[in-house]
């Protein structure tokens, strides 16, 4: 970590830059800690607002009834999946008052209805905050000291989660979700059919007849050959807006989170920047097939999830699958 006695900027930012630079310098070094893109357990990948009266809207209005859909994915279907959520208001990172229980349930989909607090409650500084836990193969509970939900038990997979519900500022146009259903994804230059995501479950045996793209696993002792996945946006994905503190409108940025049940992405994230004004702006992410030694049974279905955020509360996701065969 590099650091200077910087005159004006707090050492925090300098330290952050130094830490990032140090991390980048170590990028070439091995790191056996799991990364975000590796779906090694059942996890929450995101959440999005659902307004029944206005599908596609990513924000709620004060006092409005809506729901939050939680995107859950994992390498295998868990034996049990329990969840619980509560609602509070927040002016920052934590609840500004005791949360109110909302809903509990089991299985998917995980959709939590709620009513947005009214304008008088929210004022200009508070937002609704949904907190909860999604617990796979474990026991759901609440930490009495911290008020946070817990997931415990051998083999349990779960983490407390939170989602700050975006509220449309008074007098402004609400934000909408990106729409990935029309987007083109390509795998190695060929269109990647969305239907591949429903053909088989991750880990299932497969071959060329299953209708999935086929990729060879990485032979033992060989370097993996990175496969290119191209994500092409369209006009439905990005809206034009004027950021706070600025006067010139600009296109939304898209942050793309990549997930896979096997193999490894070169980076867990990709982005389409605001400066990329092409109506079909695209981004390429690279994925390495798993090692042949991990492909038990000679083949396995690998599932991919792509979660796209417009960094204003809007979110959509899409999935694909392919077949990895041992060489």
């Amino acid at each position: 970590m590099t650091a200077h006695h910087n005159r004006i900027l707090p050492i925090s930012l300098a330290l952050i830059v130094g830490a990032i630079l140090a991390v980048l310098l170590a990028a070439g070094c091995s790191n056996d800690l799991p990364v975000a893109s590796q779906l090694e357990r059942t996890r929450v990948l995101g959440a999005r607002v659902e307004v029944a009266s206005d599908p596609g809207r990513a924000e709620v209005s004060p006092g409005e009834a809506a729901a939050v859909s939680w995107i859950i994915a994992g390498p295998i279907t868990p034996t049990t999946l329990d969840w619980a959520f509560a609602l509070c208001t927040t002016g920052g990172a934590d609840c500004s008052e005791a949360p109110q229980p909302l809903a509990t349930g089991s299985g998917t989909p995980v959709t939590v209805p709620f009513t947005t607090p009214d304008a008088a409650t929210l004022g200009t500084k508070l937002l609704p905050l949904m907190i909860g836990a999604v617990c796979a193969d474990g026991t759901l509970g609440f930490d009495p000291t911290g008020g946070l939900p817990t997931c415990s038990g051998p083999g349990a997979s779960g983490t407390p989660v939170r989602f700050t519900v975006p509220v449309t500022p008074d007098g402004e146009v609400p934000n909408h979700h990106p729409v990935l259903s029309n987007d083109v994804l390509e795998f190695r230059g060929a269109t990647w059919d969305p239907a591949t995501a429903t053909i088989a479950a991750p880990g299932d045996a497969c071959d060329a007849t299953t209708g999935l793209p086929v990729v060879s696993a990485t032979p033992a002792g060989s370097d993996a050959v990175k496969q290119e996945i191209r994500i092409v946006s369209d006009g439905d994905d990005r809206e034009t807006f004027t950021p706070a503190g600025k006067t010139v409108p600009e296109l939304e940025e898209l942050q793309i989170s990549n997930f896979t049940t096997a193999g490894k992405f070169e980076s867990s994230y990709a982005a389409i920047f605001a400066t990329d004004t092409r109506p079909d702006a695209d981004v390429i992410v690279k994925w390495e097939p798993p090692s042949a030694s991990t492909v038990l049974g000679g083949s396995e279905v690998v599932v991919f999830h792509f979660v796209v955020r417009d960094l204003r509360g809007g979110l959509d996701f899409t999935s694909r699958a392919l077949c990895v065969v041992a060489p």
Binding site: L45, W70, L148, T159, V161, R162, F163, Q255, Y269, R309
Partner: peptide, 9 residues
């Protein structure tokens, strides 16, 4: 421990 923030992933 940790808390997952769905807004920023």
């Amino acid at each position: 421990g940790s808390v997952y923030d769905a807004n920023s992933d």
